[in-house]
Structure formats: structure tokens, C-alpha cells
Design a protein around this nucleic acid. Structure first.
Lengths: 233, 233
DNA sequence: CGGTGAATTGATCATCATCAAAGGGCGTGG
DNA sequence: CCACGCCCTTTGATGATGATCAATTCACCG
């Protein structure tokens, strides 16, 4: 059983948040909490899917192991996100692997329980669909980014996303190791390092995991301007 | 109302194919057939979603217009594919635009009808979910490809996919214009042209839209080998 | 025929990966 | 508590890959 804080956290996720309260309560009452240490696997690509997850604490990454050894990060989930919902009603293996980037706590909802709930409440379906669509939409935007933007642009976009709506000088923290960030952005760690160096010209300074953006709005404009050409003198 | 051939074609799609036959019949009875000429839009990014589609003939591309003018192709749908299912039960705008690449015929199922069907048959939900998951899965693989493979590898992968299981010399046809293919693969048309030139060394010759692969299995091996290093002498 | 847009080719530059080496932080064992 | 080692990160030098700009060829169509 979950405590109140954990319940609220789970309800922030698209899946548990879309459910009517009574369904959410009933499902979450049947959920175990998983405690993971950094690096621990949640599930492996190819395993039969058994569970829906929501992140309470820590960070979870989805990655794909290409046969050539390199593994690429598809997505990173923060507290208040759910994942692996789409497979709850399908008998298929996980198409990716999930593992903890930091020490993490997860809510684990067995597919069996979700399926049972479905019989009494079709709202469960709606929640799964809502969550799946959100993932789909994010992936579409990621594909677009990969096809149209350079590494510098993707990195700038990432730190701006961390900064949120800020318009004045901000310091944000990269919440995981840089080689993981590189794998998420689709570049090599060496390149990421050089990209940060290059962004110094645009008011971005990096010290360890701390990134300071001296002027977010200028950086934002740079992003849009750069697509057209270099940059007006 | 659809004729038998069109009905069968629609049933090949994940969405209409997952539905029990009676539901599929009932829904398709309420469907109009859209006739589009090459270039015609199906819907525009930002419009409120109103319809689920399935391709009967021709090809439909999903693309995103970035503000900088360049538009990137997210996916291309062949006859027997359905798309825009996920939004049927959500009041959101289309996140991408769809348009015909070739003259095309589409089945158009109004969301309103799908929602009504849902009341009598929750199976509709399952079909939407199945279709959405297939799209999700494809996008995951595309993201992986974009992050790990070079342009040459993506092009090689594409023509091999066209060739299917063939192991002997095959000629396949690129079903649309090359600048569209370039946008789909995330490279510029000029680069695509040069990539084809480069693939000649691996037994690929291009004449117009005809691509001949002299030895598919050799090309396949090249793909895997290349990830590790250049290529053994 | 002439025209229009796609496709190719060339030359050059920016971007990114690779290989190699050197710092730097952090934990374990002495 | 310090030293050592490990791994992440950075930096450098170089080569591969892809973009850009410009010019030309090609195919299709009025």
C-alpha cells in the first residue's frame, strides 16, 4: 500500500492521473513499491511484458541495445511519469529495456490487475490510451528534432527545457551522467563536451553537472535564428 | 459504402483488422471514401482531430512543418495502413500534417462514429490501442536508427526493407520522389544522391526510381559489419 | 520546343565520430 | 587517512559524414 505522498505522485502520471479516482485508488492498492539502486534493471528488451510502472523517485531510462554493443537511450522518465502502459493489454515482449539511472522507487502495477479492472471499468482503457498517446507524441517530436536539428541545437533545447520558463539567469542541474545525456541526444560524449564548450559563446557555462544559462531568451532566439543561417553579425 | 476489395484492404490495417468482424462491418458501413490527388492534404497540423483514416490506394505521408520552412517526413503509410486513430477519443489537434504523395483513396471514419460504437463495444478501444502501439513501436525503432546509424546505413536499410526477404538479385522501386525519401531518412536530397553513388560499391545500382540490389545478403552483412568498423579488407 | 521542377554533380565548409591521451572525482583497500 | 585505481570527462588531432551553394543535366508536360 502506498502512503499519501506516493499516491499523489503516482496520480501525477498520465496513466494514473487519467483514471477516475476510485479506479486509481483500487489499482494502486494492489501495487507494490519497487526499490532500485542506480543501474538496476527494471525489465529487459525481449522479456514478456508483465507490469505497468510509475516513477515515484529517481530516474528511469528506456534504452535499446543494438547488437553492435552501443546502446541508445530512447527516453528518460522523471517522478510522476508512467511507462510500459501500452503493453498491458497485449501479449508482446517489451521492445526496449528499462533501468534506473539513479536510486529509484517505482510503483509496479501487474498487467493482470489492470486487465481485471478493465472488466468493471472501461475507463482503464482510456487511461492506457491517453498515456500511450503522450508517449507517441513525444516520440514524434523527438524524430523531428533528430531529423532537423544539429547536436548543438538539441543540447541547447535540452538545457532550455530544464530551465523551463525562466527568462533571467538560471542554473540548472543535469540530473544524470553526461554519457547518458549524450546517448539520449544521439551524439557521442566527446561531442557533447565540445558542444558545451561551443555554447559558452551564447552564455552557457558548465561546471560538472551544473549548467548556468546567463540569458535564456537570447539562447532561445539563437536556436530559432540558427535554423535559417549562421547568425546575423 | 465500400466494395469487397476495399473492405478487405481496410481490414488489413491494424485498426480495422483488430476489430471483431461485426464491428468492422458496422463502422466501415459509415465510412466515406476520399479520393485525393497527389499533393492533396488530408489534414493539417493544429487542426482539431475529427477522423480516423485507412489507406486503400496510394501513399500518405505524415510530416511536420518546422517554422523554419523545412518540413520533415515522420512516416509514410501504404495501402492497408490506418492512421490518426489515437486521437479518436481525445479532444486534441493533430500533431502532424498528412497529405497524399501519390493519387490516393482513403477510408474516412468520423471520430463521432467510432465513439458511438465504443458504447456498445469496448473492443473499439482495444483496436485503437493496438494501432497506436504499432505506431509507437515503429517510432521507437526510428529513433534508434536515427541515433545509431549513419545516412548510408539508413538508406541501405530502407532499400533492403523494400526488397523484403529476397536473397538473390532484386529490383525494387522507390515509390515516391527522392526528396521525400530524403526527408523521411533525415538527410538532404544531395546527400541521398551521393549515398546511392556510394552504395554502388556494394552492388546497388539506381536508375530513376528503380533500385537493383545485386546481392541482398551481402548488403545486409555490410550493414552489420559497418557498425563495428569500416570493413575488413 | 521551351519551361519547370527534380535529380545529379562539384566544390567547399560545418558537423560529428574516432582514436588517443590526459585530467579529475570518488570509492576501496592498505 | 592516504594512496591507488577506476571510470567519467575533457581535450587534441584527424578523418568521415553531411550540409550548403551553385551549376548542370534530366524528365516530364504543356
Amino acid at each position: 500500500m502506498l502512503n499519501d505522498a506516493d499516491y499523489e505522485r503516482a496520480r501525477q502520471s498520465v496513466f494514473f492521473g487519467t483514471l477516475p479516482e476510485e479506479n486509481a485508488r483500487s489499482l494502486l492498492a494492489n501495487c507494490a513499491v519497487l526499490n532500485l539502486k542506480a543501474g538496476d534493471p527494471v525489465f529487459q528488451q525481449g522479456e514478456p511484458a508483465t507490469t505497468i510502472y510509475a516513477v515515484l523517485d529517481g530516474l528511469i531510462k528506456l534504452s535499446i541495445h543494438s547488437r553492435s554493443g552501443t546502446d541508445t537511450v530512447v527516453e528518460v522518465f522523471h517522478p510522476g511519469s508512467s511507462f510500459a502502459e501500452a503493453l498491458a493489454f497485449r501479449d508482446e515482449p517489451y521492445p526496449v529495456s528499462a533501468s534506473a539511472i539513479l536510486d529509484a522507487r517505482l510503483v509496479a502495477l501487474p498487467n493482470r490487475v489492470a486487465r481485471a479492472e478493465l472488466l468493471s471499468s472501461p475507463e482503464t482503457f482510456r487511461a492506457v490510451l491517453a498515456a500511450t498517446y503522450v508517449h507517441l507524441h513525444k516520440l514524434i517530436r523527438q524524430v523531428e528534432q533528430l531529423k532537423t536539428n544539429t547536436g548543438v541545437q538539441r543540447v541547447a533545447h535540452f538545457v532550455l527545457a530544464l530551465a523551463g520558463e525562466q527568462t533571467s539567469t538560471t542554473t540548472v542541474e543535469i540530473p544524470y551522467e553526461k554519457h547518458t545525456l549524450a546517448a539520449l541526444l544521439g551524439i557521442k560524449p566527446e561531442t557533447l563536451s565540445r558542444v558545451f564548450r561551443r555554447l559558452e559563446a551564447h552564455g552557457v557555462t558548465v561546471q560538472g553537472s551544473q549548467v548556468t544559462i546567463s540569458n535564456p531568451s537570447v539562447l532561445r532566439k539563437m536556436l530559432e535564428g540558427e535554423q535559417i543561417h549562421g547568425q546575423p553579425a
